[in-house]
């Protein structure tokens, strides 16, 4: 299963992911045309301050998603095959129950359409063999896209290496 990993230590708050996200969800798909589109394309990732860091907040596509449970009209659905949560705009009535229960603040209202708007995991881009727009735009690889198992394994190994260094330093100090 593929997913996006966020490394908070690498986020410089440049907001490149925000712009790329809006452009990826524009009609033209091109920055210089997208800025003139009406309605203006919406971003679905939000860089927020997080103590001394910053955090690119987006839908985490939860396995047991509160938004899916809370939606009174069955508009919020989890696509088990792709492992992502999507809004069915035909069923969404804009009540924002989903936004209220989302633990990440990743869902907002498109006020012009009156529909919930959130990360769709760049479904269109993925079908074209591309990585999600926010990942492609991130200049520091704070956002990474890949096989979850592999990224988790890499994390274990990084942590493991630092534990060994810490243990050896402690031994030397004895």
């Amino acid at each position: 299963m593929k997913g996006i990993f966020i490394d908070i230590s690498k986020c410089t708050a440049c907001k490149s992911c925000e712009i790329a996200c809006a452009v990826a969800h524009s009609k033209s798909g091109n920055l210089f045309e997208a800025i003139f589109e009406k309605p203006a394309p919406r971003k679905r990732v939000y860089v927020e301050p997080a103590n001394s860091h910053s955090y690119p907040s987006r839908c985490m596509h939860c396995k047991d998603a509160p938004c899916v449970i809370a939606c009174p009209n069955g508009a919020m659905k989890r696509d088990e095959q792709r492992g992502i949560v999507l809004v069915n705009e035909d069923r969404c009535m804009g009540c924002l129950m989903c936004a209220m229960v989302c633990p990440f603040g990743a869902i907002t209202l498109d006020s012009e359409k009156g529909k919930a708007v959130k990360c769709d995991f760049c479904t269109r881009r993925l079908s074209e063999g591309k990585v999600p727009a926010c990942v492609e735009a991130c200049p520091t690889s704070s956002l990474r896209f890949g096989e979850l198992e592999e990224m988790v394994k890499e994390k274990r190994r990084t942590i493991g290496a630092s534990v060994v260094v810490a243990a050896e330093t402690a031994k030397e100090n004895l």
């Binding site: 907001k15 925000e18 712009i19 809006a22 920055l31 997208a34 800025i35 203006a40 919406r42 971003k43």
Partner: peptide
């Protein structure tokens, strides 16, 4: 500072 070109910021 940066200005959001799409009016969402």
């Amino acid at each position: 500072c940066r200005i959001d070109p799409f009016g969402n910021g």
